[in-house]
Design a protein around this nucleic acid. Structure first.
Lengths: 342, 342
DNA sequence: CTGAAAGCGCTTACAG
DNA sequence: CTGAAAGCGCTTACAG
């Protein structure tokens, strides 16, 4: 590669000092209008760009955000939950709109990730993304907090820790979807998804689901909750177990769209008609949800807003302000999988 | 945030010079074994990490790769082709295995992207990812080459330019899938996907498809090629047009799995039985392909290998070596959508 | 094997 | 409004 120009080269050509070049390029008011123009033109002409490392070293900030994406270790290499991927898209966009670069990194929970990014000053702050049990990495969150690292996370609120989270109102979403099923005359429910403490999102959806049932005077049978993680495969397997159990069910609450897709496939194989025999709802509204057959009724999480909120709150933290945890409402998206249009 | 420790702090505590600290931390052979251990222990204890900007500034390399993902402008905000997303996953992993960070950026074709990353020294090299017409950004490729920027791209070979690409053998993949359909007794084919120069991947698949048909003495009817971009929506619409045209067809070649998913939905709505009435194949083998009903026969692109190849070839370029364009073979994945098991 | 010193390319107080 | 100078935190030739 050719030797790059430095601000000194620009200064030489413009006949000014290097300090003036630096000021002109940063639109400092301390520089004459004409000088500024001339410098900027020369810089453009020579295709000069300010060296990121030098300026970061000097200013002690990198204008970069690190996104740590935690993978479900049960997933294989290339499987990434599409919901997180659409989040990744909106986070990337939000960063770039705000003049920040985004460093992306996939992490296993067991890694020594907690100290790596801000400490090397690669990033001014960190976004933590991934479903799952914050209890299992509670200590790392504490350590991050103690180090005064700037970070925000996606997911359920962590009540005991001073951690800023952005998440969606899973309880209310679960309630909403269940009420929709009830309104369509369904009476016998099963829930597909693990509800341990290790899956707080699914658990909240389940609690909202149960709450709605109780409001309708339907008692909840724990035997009708089937564990599943958020993959098609897992949903497929859970649905098969349900079918083979011969329990009478006319409505399925799948804890995620991916689970619903797997469940749909199992039902098709067993010739169960959806929604005639069994209605089903998912959660997330991933792109495929409109293209299953029948199309999936689900609860949309606003990933675009979520990405922006995560970035904005992190930026607030970075600039020393306070930031609040935020729970976003979900939107009921009615399609055909429950047999009605509302 | 607390003031961070520098190598001088470590040096002070270890009772050595800062130079020695630097050497010890980089496992230089020029440092006494014991000294090295002591320094490393102290560094660990103080949670010291080498400042990335300082070392990058000094060594003139950033240990960072930039991934520019080009979006189809027809797509909305959160829609990213799942195929690229799985590629993103494997690229991220490949980078981190090789000690590189990954900067991710979404780009519109019309942007001034071509000069931004390596020039600011944020990255040592660039990976270009996105379907589409390299002709439309031919000039930018030329400019990148002239600037001696290190870059590789995913996609069809660019014969006229000295550009390193990694792509898959779309022609052969198209041929393979078509032969599979022929082997299953299909005789009347339609192709769903745009085949203009602006979509070289789809075009190659189409050419492979046509080649296989000709080999089987089936003449190709251009009227049975229907434009579609790689979305479910577009596949759905193309399939509707095909159905309404009342042309007799017993096999569909969808240029991507996403298109196939949309086409499947249209067929289900029209009560067309797959594979009994019409067989269908996709391309890519995205995760959903195993969970459509019936499951989709398709051509797998090895995204894990692709990611590694892209990163490795870029690293070769960065270290001043030559690198060759590489075409990867696709794998036929037989599932149920063609009515056979082989 | 170790240390003192130069220098990577900027930004910004300081002096004018 | 402009310039000379210090300094961000490293790495590495140079001297010992």
């Amino acid at each position: 590669m050719k030797a790059k120009n430095t601000s000194f080269d620009i200064a030489y050509r413009a006949g000014v000092s290097q300090s003036t070049v630096s000021r002109a390029l940063r639109d400092s008011p301390l520089v004459n209008e004409e000088t500024r123009k001339r410098v900027q033109e020369i810089a453009k002409e020579l295709n000069y760009k300010v060296d990121k490392h030098a300026s970061s070293l000097r200013t002690q900030q990198s204008q970069t955000i690190a996104l740590l994406l935690f993978e479900d270790p049960t997933n294989d290499d290339s499987l990434i939950n599409p919901f997180f991927l659409s989040m990744l898209g909106s986070i990337t966009r939000a960063c770039s709109n705000r003049g920040y670069d985004l460093l992306v990194s996939f992490q296993q929970m067991n890694n020594d990730w907690h100290a790596d990014f801000e400490d090397t000053r690669k990033a001014d702050g960190i976004i933590l993304l991934g479903y799952g049990d914050y209890l299992s990495y509670r200590e790392k969150l504490i350590q991050l907090t103690e180090q005064e690292t700037h970070f925000v996370r996606w997911g359920a609120e962590v009540k005991e820790l001073p951690v800023v989270s952005v998440g969606c109102d899973n309880f209310h979403g679960g309630q909403q979807l269940t009420e929709h099923l009830l309104n369509n005359g369904r009476t016998h429910f099963a829930f597909l998804g693990g509800v341990s403490n290790g899956a707080p999102e699914f658990k909240d959806r389940y609690l909202g689901h149960c709450h709605a049932l109780e409001q309708a005077n339907i008692s909840v049978d724990p035997a009708l909750q089937f564990d599943a993680i958020s993959t098609e495969e897992s949903g497929y397997e859970a649905m098969q177990i349900l079918i083979k159990s011969n329990k009478h069910v006319d409505a399925i609450f799948a804890a995620s769209d991916l689970i619903a897709v797997g469940a749909l496939k199992a039902m098709q194989e067993y010739n169960i008609k959806v929604p005639e025999d069994i209605a089903i709802v998912g959660f997330d509204d991933i792109p495929i949800a409109s293209f299953t057959y029948p199309a999936l009724t689900t609860a949309r999480q606003n990933t675009v807003l979520a990405g922006e909120l995560l970035v904005d709150k992190l930026l607030e933290l970075i600039s020393g302000e306070q930031a609040q945890t935020r729970l976003m409402a979900t939107t009921l998206v009615v399609r055909e999988s429950c047999g009605s249009k509302r």
